[in-house]
Amino acid sequence: MTFLKNRLVWPVAMLALLLLCALIFSDGFFDIRIQDGHLFGTPINILRASAPLVLVAVGMTLVISTGGIDLSVGSVMAVSGAMACLIIGDLANQNSVGGVTLAVVAAIALSLVLGLWNGFLVAVLGIQPIIATLILMVAGRGLAQLITSGQIINVQSSPYKVIGTGFVLGLPVSVLIAVAVLVIAALLTRRTALGLLLESVGGSPVASRLAGIQARRLTIMVYVVSAACAGIAGLIYSSNVSSADGNNAGNLIELDAILAVVIGGTALTGGRFSLAGTALGAILIATLDTTAQAVGIPPETTLVFKAVVVVVLCLAQSPAFRARLFRRPAARPAARAEVPA
């Protein structure tokens, strides 16, 4: 049973189980058809809904691998979307590609600055990550509301709409962006020494520094990358509904992102990390929400349903729990005989 020890087996099994439930209880869940020249159907919707979470969770994985945490991602999403919509709203021609590009660049640049601020607090001033990023989590939400003056900003811009709702070669643009970021992050961390260095910083910052690794610079970098991912996620989120909602955009997504990272088998204490696991975790969370709705679980009980799935998954992933579960039948010879070889 060595395959059971692989970190990704349980999330994959859970995802399969969920999809099986959806297949049984919801007609047409897997119907994918071509409409207006692109793919259309619930599985595509799940992927589209999970794109912002995948992006945020990829950034979160890198931060967590260094032993940190970034609570400000949801607020950065809100700021980024608000900034982009503010600029586009002021354009003389909202459909100008140049203007929208400017807005997107400005929004991501602002996100980078916010990430730099987090990195500065953590790596230079030595503030605990949970506190340092908590500051921006609260202040960033305020900043977003300031940009939108507490209202929802609407834009009517077809180039901007492409980010969240467009399709290229029949595939959703938002999903392609998420996949691209995931692949770049995976290549940079696994095909270069970067991943090893991050894990080393997460394992022991002091030992890493003594070994000649620039721990401080790496720490600042992961917070900047995390904010950039959140910024792009914020653009997808706001583009999806062609509006910026400073109050609700990315609300509580930091918790879902942390959950995705943990489901993916990365420990919160830092060190070893798995980007593939994180992406799987994020898709699992999005599937959970959609399945609950498609199957018709009442909204009051959806959170309980989610909690049960996560608890079962975490128990299955825990080596101590599995050891107990499998040891017991072995203690009774009679039970063992019934287990087929």
Binding site: T42, N45, V241, Q293, A294
Partner: peptide, 23 residues
Amino acid sequence: SQTGKFERTGGKQTMETMLQSVK
């Protein structure tokens, strides 16, 4: 009958699911 949490994105995503699951 599902929640959209009083938000635009919530309303859009929930409606996407319902459009598929309800004929």
